[in-house]
Design a protein around this nucleic acid. Structure first.
Length: 272
DNA sequence: AATCATCCCAACCGCAATAGG
DNA sequence: ACCTATTGCGGTTGGGATGAT
């Protein structure tokens, strides 16, 4: 695809369509020399017959150093799903959380790979009863509600329990009866999650569904989580979520709630 | 082998936000 | 306070690649 058109403002004819390697070199040399920014000056400085928008996009999405190519990893996909639930189509914000990926990459991946899947897998219907949803203890303690998460390399043991029946109750909307604990064996990324006892009541199912969903009007700030990272020797870290509700350690995958979601659907089938 | 359908992704477009005069 | 230029973002498009018939 190679077209020429008249720039709407300057009336100057500029090239459109796919970039050539020669153009890439010119643009890269220009950025190397003058740095990013001042995009309106870039076409002139680089000697490119391209509009400023085209130059900027080419740099951001293709030429910029450290751009990651190739397939998205499990953890990247997991993070995208989680972030999209939090942020919606805020692609630049989502991409900002995934090192090496551009907003365009994330958007394209979502539109081509995830959108259909997410639509075909509806989540809990939001009703007055289920409106709360995301566990929001004001304080977390290792001794009551623990929410341990898988890490990309260690697949540390996961355990979610609700021993916290009476205090820190999630706005009183989550059933206080504790269903069971859920765990994923150490060193096993593909092994199924397991429950310490089978789901045997509607309350149990409600409890888990509430745990992994959240209210759209619930502020995400104030969310805290404690993570004890296992599988890395004796290392133990405490990770605090930041304002976007994400673990602030970029190397840690913060979510496996889709796993729980899928797991729950199977469990529900069995209960039914 | 030829044709058609679908997928994927780079690039474009329009618009809102921001900066600067 | 207003206007204009610039930037950045998200939605959309176009065409090459790939798969199905």
């Amino acid at each position: 695809m190679e077209r020429d058109f008249m720039d709407e403002k300057s009336g100057f004819g500029v090239r459109k369509g796919a970039w050539t390697s020669e153009e890439d070199v010119l643009l890269k040399n220009c950025i190397d020399k003058y740095g990013e920014g001042k995009w309106h000056q870039v076409p002139f400085r680089a000697g490119l017959n391209r509009c400023r928008k085209s130059c900027r996009l080419r740099w951001l999405n293709y030429l910029r150093p450290n751009i990651k190519r190739g397939e998205f990893t499990f953890d990247e996909v997991d993070l995208i799903i989680r972030l999209h639930k939090l942020l919606g189509n805020r692609w630049s914000l989502i991409a900002g959380r995934i090192p090496g990926r551009t907003a365009n990459d994330v958007k394209n991946y979502w539109n081509t790979n995830l959108r259909k899947k997410m639509i075909s897998q509806p989540r809990v219907e939001i009703t007055e009863k289920t409106k709360v949803v995301r566990p929001q203890p004001r304080t977390f303690s290792k001794n009551n509600l623990s929410l341990l998460m898988r890490t990309p390399n260690s697949h540390s043991q996961v355990e979610i329990t609700n021993n916290n029946k009476n205090k820190n109750n999630i706005n009183g909307n989550v059933p206080t009866s504790s269903p069971s604990s859920l765990s994923m064996p150490r060193d096993s990324s593909s092994s199924p999650l397991s429950l310490s006892k089978p789901l045997d009541s509607r309350d149990d199912i409600d409890w888990w569904e509430n745990l992994i969903s959240w209210s759209e009007d619930e502020p995400i700030s104030n969310l805290w989580a404690e993570e004890e990272v296992g599988g890395r020797g004796n290392e133990s870290t405490l990770v605090q979520e930041d304002q976007s509700g994400l673990l602030n350690n970029n190397n840690e995958s913060p979510s496996f709630d889709m796993d729980i979601w899928n797991f729950l659907n199977v469990e529900k089938e069995m209960v039914a």
